[in-house]
Design a protein around this nucleic acid. Structure first.
Length: 886
RNA sequence: GGGCACUUGGCUCAGCUGGGAGAGCACUUCCUUGACGUGGAAGGGGUCAGGGGUUCGAGUCCCUUAGUGCCCACCA
C-alpha cells in the first residue's frame, strides 16, 4: 500500500495526475454510436487571454458536469477551442508594433497577418495550459480555433449562403464608429453611460426675419452638418415657424424648419437641430424628409473638409471654438449642465461616433423568430429562468447586425470587386471571370467579419460542419452551454439563431448562466483596479480542488459571488479531511481487501452509514441532473465531514481495535464501501484529491472496483434495497443519547478523561435492545466507564443527572464531578425549550382549521411530537424537583 | 423611462415546488483519545429590510415602501 502523507499536499500530486489522465486519453470522447452522447462546447477563450476567475468558475462547472456524465457512461464530449478575438488581438498587435516604432499601415496587410499568426503561436496555448491546471477534462485532441481551415470554411459557407438568401446585405446606414480603433462596432459592443455634459442653447436666425429659433444641443460641433431644424407639430411656440427657413450660424446654410412628432415638447427648447450624418435619430428624420447628409468628421475624430475653417481640429477643439464664436456672435443663449447617455466602445472605452458608412449587415427580423420561439416554448431552457427576460430584452428590440469591421485579423469578407466594371461577386473563392463584363482581375473586400460571426457557429463548426462528420451527427445538438450572462447578446442569441438557420436545429438544450466573481469587497475584478485575483495563484497556494470547490459552493446560478480566501482555506481543509479519513481507512484495511459480509453481520451503525451514503447518492445525482451543482456540493461536504468522519469513523473505532473479527470485517467493508462512494460522488468537484486516494484504495478493492482511475469508474447508483430505515432510526437514537451525554458533561465542564457510569433506562424492550446492540460505540462516544441498560431506575443514585430521550432516559451518577446549580440551569433551559415546543404543537392541534385543512400525515406527525415532548417534560420536571430537594 | 436581482446570525452566503431558521469564517469554553490541531466536543448569536394581504400555517406566494446593485432604451 502506498503511504499517504500526513497532510494533503496538492502541489505534489496534481501535475502528475493530470499528465496521466492525458496520457491515458481519458478526456477523449470516442464518438461511439452505441453510447448516448453528452456534449458541452466550451466558450472559446480569446487567444490573447489569461485565465481569470470568470474562466475558472465557468470551466469548473463544465468540468464537473462532464466528469459526472462520463462516469455515468455517456459518450461525454467537452469540446474546447479558442477564439481569434479579432479586435482584441489586433489591438494588442498594434500596440506591440508601436513599441517597435512600426505603424500597422506601413507594414501592410500581409506582413501584419504574419505577425498575428506568430502571436497566436506564441500565446495561443497559454490559456489552454492554464485551464489544464484547473483540472479541465476537455477533449484537447479536438481543440479548435475560429480561424482553423475548417472553421473558416464554415464562415465562408454561411456568409455566401446568407448573402444568396438575402440575409446578408451591403448597405449604407448610420453605424457605430470607434475613432480610436478605426472600425465599426455592433450595437452590442456599445456601452451607454450616463455622462455629465452641457446643453448649449443656440439661436438660429430665421431667414428674412428679425428673429431666431432657439435650439438646444449637447454637441455644438455637429452643427456643421446640420441640414434642418425640427419642432413638434403641436407646439404652440413654433406654429408660425414651421415651413420657414433658418440660417445655420457660422456656416450660413439654409435649414428648413420641419415638424415631426418625434420631438419631445419637454426637452430643451422643443426645437432641435437635425444632423443626419452624426446622430441615429437625426438619420431617421433625414430619411423621412430627404434631408442632405453632411458628414463633417474624419474617421479618426477630426473635422473634415466640410467643416470649413475648423477642418483639422479634433471634435473637442472644434466644440470649444464654435461655442466661443457663437458667444462672440451673440447667438449663444445659455449653457446648462446636463447629464446624458453617451455610447462608449466597450473595448477601448472611447466615445462612439455615429457615422454613415457603407457596411455589411445581417438582416435580423426573420432570423430571430425561431430563436425567440425556442426560448419562449422551453425548447431551450435558460437557467435561471429569469434570464428569459434578459434574452427578450434584446430579441424584442433587435436591429440588423453590422458585421463588417475595418480590421485585418479575422475572416475577410468573401466579396470580390471586378477591376474593370466594379461588379461585386460574393463567393467562397475569388471568381475567374466577372459575370458582368468578363474581366479577370478582382479586389477582395478589405473588411473582416465581426469576431462573433464565427463564434455564432461554434456549436456545429467545431464538430466539423459544413462537412457531415460522424461527430456532427453524434454530438449535435449539444446538451449544455455554461457561460456568463454578460454575453447573452454577443454570443448566446447568435448561436441560437445560427443553429436554427444552418442546422435546422437548436444548438443546445440548456444554458446555465454564471454570475460574476467579485473581489472580497464585492467589486468587479478589473485590470484598472488591480483587484483581480489570479486563479493560478490560488491553485498554487491551496490546490485546484480547493479553488474549484470554492467557486461552486455558496452560490446559485446566475448570481454574482464574492471571492474569499477564507473559503478557499476552508475547502482546502475539507480536502485534507477526506485525505486523512482515507488515510485512516487505508491504515486499517488489510492488503487482501475485504469481502462483502453477510447482511446479518452488519451492525446497525454500518447499515446506517450505508443507507445514508445511498441516499446521498440519490440526492447528489438528482441535484446534478438539475444542474444544482452547488447544492450537491453542500450535501457532499456535510455527509463526508459530519456523518462519515465525525460520527461513523468514531463509532467504528472500538470494533476495529476489538477482538470480534466478524464485526471488524463488517466495519472495514462498510468503511471501504462508503469511502469509495463518497470519493466517486466527490470526484467531479475535487478531481485531484479523489484520484490520488483512489489510486491507493482501488488496489485493495479491485474485485468490485476494477477501473484503474476514478475518472473512468462508474458513477454510484441509488439502490432502494440499500435504504435501511430501521437501522437509521435505531442508530440515530443512540446518536441522540450520545449528544445528550456530551451536552450534560460539557455543561458541567467534566473533563473527557473523567469517565462515568452511564445508565440507560427504558421500559421498552425494543429500545433496550437498541442500546445493547450499540453498546460498543455508545460506551466510547459517551465516555462511559460502564454502561448499564435496565428497565427501571433501580440502583441509580437519586441525584444522578439525566438526559431525556423520546423513549428512554439516560442517567449519569452525579458522584463528585458535578455542579448542581449548573445542572438546574441546564434543565431550566431545557424546560423552557420544551414549553415552547409544546405550546407550538398545542396551538396547531387545537386549531380547528388546521385540523380540518392540513393533510392527515401532518396532523399525525404533530400529535406524535406532542406525546414525545410531554413525556420529556415530565421527566425534566421530576428531575428538577429532585435536584432542588438535595 | 422600462426591466431584473438583492436585503436571512459579526462577516460571506445557502435555503427547490409554503409545514419546526442553516453552513463556512469569526467568537466563547473544553480536549496533545492511536486519520486529521488544515483536528475534535459543547456553546452564544437572527422580530429572515419595513408595512399590508392570501393561507390552518409565509424567509418561501401576492401587493406596497425603502435601500443597494445590475441590465436595457436613438430624449436632442
Amino acid at each position: 500500500m502506498k503511504e499517504l502523507a500526513k497532510t494533503y499536499n496538492p502541489k505534489e500530486i496534481e501535475q502528475s495526475i493530470y499528465d496521466n489522465w492525458l496520457k491515458q486519453k481519458y478526456f477523449h470522447a470516442s464518438c461511439d454510436e452505441s453510447k448516448k452522447p453528452f456534449t458541452i462546447v466550451m466558450p472559446p477563450p480569446n487567444i490573447t487571454g489569461q485565465l481569470h476567475m470568470g474562466h475558472a468558475l465557468n470551466n469548473t462547472l463544465q468540468d464537473i458536469v462532464i466528469r459526472q456524465k462520463r462516469m455515468q457512461g455517456y459518450d461525454a464530449l467537452w469540446q474546447p477551442g479558442c477564439d481569434h478575438a479579432s479586435i482584441a488581438t489586433e489591438v494588442k498587435i498594434i500596440e506591440a508594433l508601436k513599441k517597435e516604432g512600426i505603424d500597422k499601415r506601413d507594414l501592410g496587410r500581409e506582413k501584419f497577418l504574419e505577425r498575428a499568426w506568430q502571436w497566436k503561436e506564441e500565446y495561443g496555448g497559454r490559456i489552454v495550459n492554464q485551464l489544464k491546471k484547473l483540472g479541465s477534462s476537455a477533449d484537447w485532441d479536438r481543440e479548435r480555433f475560429t480561424m482553423d481551415e475548417g472553421l473558416s470554411d464554415a464562415v465562408l459557407q454561411v456568409f455566401v449562403k446568407m448573402y444568396e438568401k438575402g440575409l446578408i446585405y451591403k448597405g449604407t446606414k448610420i453605424i457605430n464608429w470607434c475613432p480610436k480603433c478605426l472600425t465599426t462596432v455592433s450595437d452590442a459592443e456599445v456601452e451607454h453611460k450616463d455622462t455629465p455634459g452641457h446643453f448649449w442653447h443656440i439661436n438660429y436666425p430665421i431667414k428674412g426675419e428679425d428673429r431666431c429659433i432657439e435650439i438646444a444641443t449637447t454637441r455644438p460641433e455637429t452643427m456643421l452638418g446640420d441640414t434642418a431644424v425640427v419642432v413638434h407639430p403641436d407646439d404652440e411656440r413654433y406654429q408660425d415657424l414651421i415651413g420657414k427657413t433658418a440660417i445655420l450660424p457660422i456656416v450660413n446654410r439654409e435649414l428648413p424648419i420641419i415638424a415631426d412628432t418625434y420631438i419631445d415638447l419637454e426637452v430643451g427648447t422643443g426645437a432641435m437641430k437635425v444632423t443626419p450624418a452624426h446622430d441615429p435619430n437625426d438619420f431617421e428624420l433625414g430619411k423621412r424628409y430627404q434631408l442632405e447628409e453632411i458628414c463633417v468628421f474624419t474617421d479618426d475624430g477630426h473635422i473634415n473638409e466640410n467643416g470649413g475653417k475648423y477642418e483639422g481640429m479634433t471634435t473637442l477643439e472644434c466644440r470649444e471654438a464654435i461655442v466661443k464664436e457663437l458667444e462672440e456672435m451673440g447667438l449663444l443663449v445659455k449653457v446648462k449642465a446636463y447629464e446624458h447617455s453617451v455610447g462608449h466602445h466597450d473595448r477601448c472605452g472611447c466615445i462612439i461616433e455615429p457615422m454613415i458608412k457603407q457596411q455589411w449587415f445581417v438582416k435580423m427580423d426573420e432570423l430571430i423568430k425561431p430563436a425567440i420561439k425556442a426560448v419562449d416554448e422551453g425548447e431551450i431552457r435558460l437557467i435561471p429562468a429569469r434570464m428569459n427576460k434578459l434574452y427578450h430584452n434584446w430579441t424584442d428590440n433587435i436591429r440588423d447586425w453590422c458585421i463588417s469591421r475595418q480590421l485585418w485579423w479575422g475572416h475577410r469578407i468573401p466579396a470580390y470587386y471586378c477591376d474593370s466594371c466594379g461588379h461585386m461577386t460574393v463567393a467562397r473563392e475569388c471568381p475567374d471571370v466577372c459575370p458582368e463584363c468578363g474581366g479577370t482581375s478582382f479586389q477582395q473586400d478589405e473588411d473582416c467579419l465581426d469576431t462573433w460571426f464565427s463564434s455564432a457557429l461554434w456549436p456545429f463548426s467545431t464538430l466539423g460542419w459544413p462537412e457531415q462528420t460522424p461527430e456532427l451527427k453524434h454530438f449535435y445538438p449539444t446538451n449544455l452551454l455554461i457561460t456568463g450572462y454578460d454575453i447573452i447578446f454577443f454570443w448566446v442569441i447568435r448561436m441560437i439563431f445560427s443553429g436554427y438557420e444552418h442546422m435546422g436545429e437548436k444548438p443546445f438544450d440548456a444554458v446555465l448562466f454564471t454570475g460574476l466573481v467579485r473581489d472580497e469587497l464585492g467589486r468587479k475584478m478589473s485590470k484598472s483596479l488591480g483587484n483581480g485575483i489570479d486563479p493560478l495563484e490560488v491553485i498554487d497556494k491551496y490546490g485546484a480542488d480547493a479553488l474549484r470547490f470554492t467557486l461552486v459552493t455558496g452560490n446559485s446560478p446566475g448570481n454574482d459571488m464574492r471571492f474569499s480566501w477564507d473559503r478557499v482555506e476552508a475547502n482546502r481543509n475539507f480536502a485534507n479531511k477526506i485525505w486523512n479519513a482515507s488515510r485512516f481507512i487505508l491504515m486499517n484495511l488489510p492488503e487482501e481487501g475485504v469481502k462483502t459480509p453477510k447482511e446479518e453481520s452488519l451492525h446497525d451503525a454500518d447499515k446506517w452509514i450505508l443507507s445514508r451514503a445511498n441516499k446521498l447518492t440519490r440526492v447528489v445525482t438528482e441535484n446534478m441532473d438539475k444542474y444544482e451543482i452547488g447544492m450537491a456540493a453542500d450535501r457532499l461536504y456535510e455527509f463526508i465531514w459530519d456523518e462519515l468522519c465525525d460520527w461513523y469513523i468514531e463509532m467504528v473505532k472500538p470494533r476495529l481495535y476489538g477482538e470480534d473479527e466478524e464485526s471488524k470485517h463488517a466495519a472495514l467493508y462498510t468503511l471501504r464501501t462508503v469511502l469509495m462512494t463518497s470519493l466517486k460522488l466527490l470526484h467531479p468537484y475535487m478531481p485531484f484529491v479523489t484520484e490520488a486516494i483512489y489510486g491507493s484504495l482501488q488496489p485493495l478493492a479491485a474485485d468490485l472496483y476494477p477501473e484503474e482511475s476514478i475518472m473512468i469508474s462508474a458513477w454510484p447508483v441509488y439502490d432502494e434495497t440499500m435504504d435501511y430505515e430501521e437501522a437509521e432510526r435505531r442508530t440515530q437514537m443512540i446518536m441522540e443519547a450520545v449528544r445528550g451525554i456530551r451536552n450534560v458533561r460539557s455543561g458541567m465542564n467534566v473533563p473527557l478523561s473523567r469517565k462515568s457510569k452511564v445508565y440507560v433506562v427504558s421500559e421498552s424492550e425494543e429500545i433496550r435492545e437498541i442500546f445493547e446492540h450499540g453498546h460498543v460505540f455508545f460506551a466510547t462516544l459517551g465516555k462511559a466507564s460502564e454502561v448499564m441498560i435496565q428497565k427501571n431506575t433501580e440502583g441509580i443514585a437519586k441525584d444522578a443527572l439525566s438526559v431525556q430521550l423520546a423513549g428512554a432516559t439516560i442517567y449519569i451518577p452525579l458522584e463528585d464531578l458535578v455542579d448542581i446549580d449548573k445542572e438546574i440551569e441546564r434543565l431550566e433551559k431545557e424546560k423552557i425549550r420544551l414549553e415552547g415546543e409544546l405550546k407550538r404543537v398545542d396551538g396547531m392541534l387545537s386549531n380547528e382549521r388546521f385540523l380540518s385543512k392540513a393533510p392527515e400525515s401532518k396532523i399525525r406527525e404533530e400529535q406524535e411530537k406532542k406525546e414525545k415532548y410531554a413525556g420529556m417534560m415530565a421527566q425534566v420536571e421530576s428531575q428538577l424537583a429532585s435536584l432542588r430537594r438535595s
